[in-house]
Design a protein around this nucleic acid. Structure first.
Ligand SMILES: [Mn+2]
Ligand SMILES: [Mn+2]
Ligand SMILES: [Zn+2]
Ligand SMILES: [Zn+2]
Lengths: 140, 140
DNA sequence: TGAATTATTGAAATAAATTTCAATTGAGAC
DNA sequence: GTCTCAATTGAAATTTATTTCAATAATTCA
């Protein structure tokens, strides 16, 4: 629930309260190895602890996002998905035509990140992107 | 209204009907030199032509997006903004802390686009991005 | 022309996410 | 322990965007 090194311990280190609601939400995020949506988190949490509100889920995700503990990615599904920030740095190529998703390592964006830092002194968040376009099958 | 080379003429070339609603919407998009939101387009259109529905605006934007005639960009305002695809190829750095927006030329993403094409045969849409992060003032 | 078919629209419902505001909880002061 | 105050939450309202479905408009074809 509040495992050392986990998101929960970071939250309390930073002075945020580790409420039952937050603990359940964090556990849902951390236990999922896939990208998880707010509604999916809510469904998991509400099953064990019915007095929790969907807006608390969104608020907690918002907080974690702001603290850089989770990444938020829009893969074009009409809802956004979340990911613990430390779990696998990678990006996704999303084919707009067939929906195929190709994973890539973070390093593809490293040159851009460097350029932006060097030329604009801008620290770009390029940790978990969805890049849209057309895959090889759909582009012929 | 349906100037040659404009979005309207491309639409009819492709076999889509150039309805009064669409003409007004296109004119609102093309006449704006800035990035324009759906609600702003709607406000402009409804002032001249009251029998138009907001869902027609969204639907038209969806169509134009799909045809690659406008780009859609989320600059983190809670609503998305649109831009004629041929009007200025550039990106935006958006500071998550102070909201500052720095413009960049399209070329920053050229190396990534090339890499994705070469290594993944993926044709990436990297025409009008909002890249989030922290500007020089906010990162010290 | 006129019927059949298809594209487009408006209105209302719906969905995802955010905001508002009052109630509750919890941490620290005394 | 009790008081005080700030943080957090729940419930409902709101916002942006999408979807559904019936009505309308335009196009195709007999
Ligand atoms: Mn991922
Ligand atoms: Mn722009
Ligand atoms: Zn594809
Ligand atoms: Zn800034």
């Amino acid at each position: 629930m509040n495992n050392p090194g986990g998101i929960g311990s970071k939250l309390s280190e930073l002075g945020y309260r580790l409420t039952p609601q937050r603990m359940m939400i964090l556990s849902a995020i951390e236990s999922s190895d896939d990208h998880v949506s707010a509604e999916e988190i809510y469904a998991q949490v509400v099953a064990k602890y019915s007095n929790v509100n969907i807006s608390t889920v969104y608020r907690t995700l918002e907080l974690l996002k702001r603290l850089g503990l989770v990444t938020e990615t829009d893969m074009g599904e009409g809802r956004v998905r979340y990911h613990p920030a430390d779990k696998g740095h990678h990006h996704h190529l999303v084919c707009k035509e067939c929906g195929a998703i190709i994973n890539l390592t973070e390093s593809v964006m490293a040159p851009v990140k460097d350029t932006l830092l060097r030329e604009y002194k801008f620290i770009a968040d390029l940790e978990h992107l969805a890049i849209f376009g057309r895959c090889i099958n759909c582009s012929k």
